[in-house]
Amino acid sequence: MQTTPVEVIDYDANGYDYREYWSGRDYELWAEQRVLRRLVPKLGRPTWFADFGGAFGRNAGHYLARAEHAVIMDFSATNLRNAGDRHAAEVATGKLHLVRADLYRIPFRDFAFDAGMVVRVLHHLSDVNRGLTEMSRTVGGRWLVDVPIKHHVLGLARGLRCGQLREVRSPAPVAMGVEEQFWNFQLGAVRDRLGDLGWRTSLGASVNNFRQWEKVAPRANKLARPFVHGMEVVAQTWGRGWWGPSQFLVARRHDPAQPAYDRPGGHTVDLPPELAGLARRMVCPVCMTRLNWTTATATCTRCDHTYHRHGAFWDFVPPQ
């Protein structure tokens, strides 16, 4: 059934390169990478892994060593081209696939992936329930969900100071920012939604618990870094569920599903093996129907939409 399109932020429209965002954000990068080293192993050793909104493959090192195959999905063609350069060897062998996709209309079958993760993405989703529904239907076992919350320590303090404490603590998401909106959520509301979708969740970590320190004392960075890093290590466990602005959940499906998408033959018999496994998992994002494949195109057998390969990535964003 067709659903109303939701506006998706297009970072390519103004030539933005997401890699620039990480310049001068050493603490945030360190804090997040530490958590991923600890939590990604909890997802097991999947045959197929999904990195939803995985950008230029910044986090791919955490799962490429554990998964047989992985897919980075992102709406930005610039991100995917950069991911292709960064992980050219893995793309060439078919260990890593790059797919341009709208996370509200994902071109993959139900339970196409054994495991996955979504990091620094939910704050872009104005309709988070729909986004979670669409992503979760493609994961059969476990996934890691990074939730930007509004009721962290500083958020509660701001809410109290501005007389908005009720709004901060309510289940409804709030939009932040002026030129561009970013969404923050109540952690309990997100966990309830995942529960409705068949997942049981546990608190994984509180992340970026002291992310403002680099702005407050930029000249003291080198001297203060060991102390702040030590506090972050403690708060990542102690602050789960309430301290930091990013709360990581480990989600496990109540009834894990493992469809047999890797059976040889069928409509992928003439494809090279590094592409055939991907093709067996994919469908048209418009009508969820099987695709006819070549090494350069994939055409829907029902609505005749054709999707193309552009260098290292496949573009599965439906034409407007």
Rank of each mutant, 00 (worst) to 15 (best):
T4Q: 11
V6C: 05
E7A: 13
A13W: 11
Y16E: 11
W22S: 04
Y27T: 07
E28L: 08
W30T: 01
E32C: 06
V35Q: 10
V35D: 09
K42T: 15
T47G: 14
G53C: 08
A55H: 15
G57P: 10
R58M: 02
R58P: 09
A60D: 05
G61S: 13
L64H: 10
D74E: 05
E90N: 01
G94C: 15
H97W: 15
L103N: 08
L103V: 10
Y104L: 12
Y104T: 03
P107M: 06
D110A: 10
D110F: 01
D110R: 07
G116A: 14
V119F: 09
V121A: 11
L125E: 00
D127G: 07
V128I: 07
R130T: 15
G131C: 15
G131F: 12
L132Q: 08
S136K: 00
R137H: 02
T138N: 05
G140C: 10
D146I: 06
D146S: 08
P148V: 13
I149C: 03
V153W: 07
L160E: 10
G163H: 08
Q164W: 07
L165I: 09
S170V: 10
S170M: 13
P171N: 06
P171C: 11
A175S: 10
V178G: 12
F185A: 01
F185G: 02
F185T: 00
F185R: 01
Q186N: 14
L187C: 12
L187E: 00
G188S: 15
V190W: 07
D196N: 14
G198Q: 06
R200N: 14
G204I: 03
R211P: 01
Q212T: 04
Q212N: 06
H229R: 08
V233H: 09
T237M: 04
W242C: 05
W242R: 03
W242H: 00
G244E: 03
P245G: 11
S246Q: 10
Q247F: 00
F248G: 04
R252T: 12
R253W: 03
D255M: 02
Q258K: 02
P272F: 12
L278K: 04
V283R: 09
V283A: 09
C284T: 10
C284M: 06
P285L: 00
L291W: 06
W293F: 14
T294W: 13
T295S: 14
A298Y: 04
H305L: 12
H308C: 11
G311R: 03
F313M: 09
D315C: 04
V317K: 06
P319C: 08
Q320V: 04
